[in-house]
C-alpha cells in the first residue's frame, strides 16, 4: 500500500481500469486535457442540450399542419431573397478582398493614383477585369436582392408582431448597403465618382446645424480632395464591413430564433 494520498479524481487510473480502445483512449486523453484548461464540463449541459435540440423532430409548420402548401407555393422563391443577398454579400466580400490587394488610394497628394490602380487592374492584371466585374455585379445584385427582400417581407406581412425589431434592423441594413454602394462608387475616382461625391458633399452641407460638421467628418472638407477618397476607402473596406457583417449576423440570428413568417 502506497503512502501517497490517493487522488479521488485519478483520471489516469480510471482510464487504465476501463480498458479502452486506442480511439477511446485518445479521445478521453484529449478531452481531459482540454477540460483541465477550459472547464468544458461547465458547458457540457449546454452542449448536450444543443445536441438534442438539433436532432429533435421538427414541428409541423403552419403550412403543413393546415395543408396550405398548394395555396402559396409561388411565394417560396421570394423567401430565398434574404439568403441570396447574404450570398451576394459574401461574393462581394471575397472579390473585394482580392481587389484590395491591388487597389490603393494615395495617402496624400494626387487622387489620380486611385484611378490609375483601377486602370491597372482592368488592363494589366491577370483576371483583374473579371474580378472587378464580379465585385461590381455582386454589389448590384445584392442591392437589388435586398430591395426585393424588403418588398417580400412587406407584402407577406412578415414584419408583424414578434418581428418589428428585425424590420427596423433591416432598414438599418438596407441603408448601410446603399452607403456601401455609394462609397464603392466613389473609389475609382473617375468623372462619375467625382460628381456623385460632389452631390454627397452638397447633401450633407444642406443638413441644418450639423451639416458642416458631417461634411468634414465624412468627406474630409467642403470640396472633394484626396482626403475624401481616403475616407471613402476606409469606410468601404474597414468600417462598413465590420458593422454590416455583425448586423447581418444578428438579423439572421433573430430570424433563426423566430422562424420564417409564412403568409396564412
Amino acid at each position: 500500500m502506497s503512502l501517497e494520498k490517493k487522488d479521488e479524481m485519478d483520471h489516469k487510473g480510471w482510464m487504465k481500469r476501463k480498458d479502452l480502445t486506442p480511439v477511446e483512449a485518445t479521445f478521453l486523453t484529449a478531452l481531459v486535457w482540454m477540460d483541465k484548461r477550459l472547464r468544458i464540463v461547465d458547458y457540457l449541459e449546454l452542449m448536450e442540450n444543443l445536441y438534442y435540440k438539433v436532432n429533435m423532430q421538427m414541428p409541423k409548420s403552419h403550412t403543413e399542419q393546415y395543408d396550405l402548401d398548394n395555396k402559396f407555393w409561388y411565394w417560396y422563391p421570394l423567401y430565398a431573397l434574404g439568403s441570396f443577398s447574404t450570398l451576394a454579400y459574401v461574393v462581394a466580400a471575397v472579390s473585394g478582398a482580392l481587389l484590395g490587394f491591388y487597389y490603393a488610394p494615395a495617402q496624400a497628394g494626387d487622387p489620380s493614383t486611385a484611378y490609375n490602380s483601377i486602370t491597372f487592374i482592368m488592363t494589366d492584371l491577370q483576371f483583374g477585369f473579371m474580378l472587378r466585374s464580379i465585385h461590381r455585379w455582386s454589389a448590384q445584385v445584392m442591392v437589388a436582392a435586398v430591395f426585393l427582400h424588403m418588398l417580400r417581407v412587406y407584402f407577406t406581412g412578415a414584419y408583424k408582431e414578434p418581428r418589428e425589431l428585425n424590420w427596423l434592423l433591416g432598414i438599418v441594413l438596407i441603408s448601410l448597403t446603399m452607403v456601401f454602394g455609394y462609397t464603392g462608387y466613389l473609389l475609382p475616382w473617375d468623372q462619375l465618382a467625382f460628381w456623385a461625391g460632389q452631390i454627397g458633399v452638397e447633401m450633407s452641407l444642406s443638413i441644418p446645424l450639423a451639416g458642416e460638421w458631417i461634411a468634414q467628418l465624412l468627406f474630409g472638407g467642403f470640396t472633394l480632395s484626396q482626403a475624401t477618397l481616403q475616407r471613402m476607402y476606409i469606410l468601404h473596406v474597414f468600417l462598413l464591413p465590420f458593422v454590416v457583417t455583425t448586423l447581418i449576423a444578428i438579423h439572421i440570428g433573430i430570424v433563426w430564433v423566430q422562424g420564417i413568417a409564412e403568409p396564412h
Binding site: S133, I134, D190
Partner: peptide, 17 residues
Amino acid sequence: IFFLAATMPPHIGAPAN
C-alpha cells in the same frame, strides 16, 4: 452573378476632372 459579370463587365469613365 458570374454569368452577368462575364457578359456585361463594367467600364471606367474619364478620370475625375
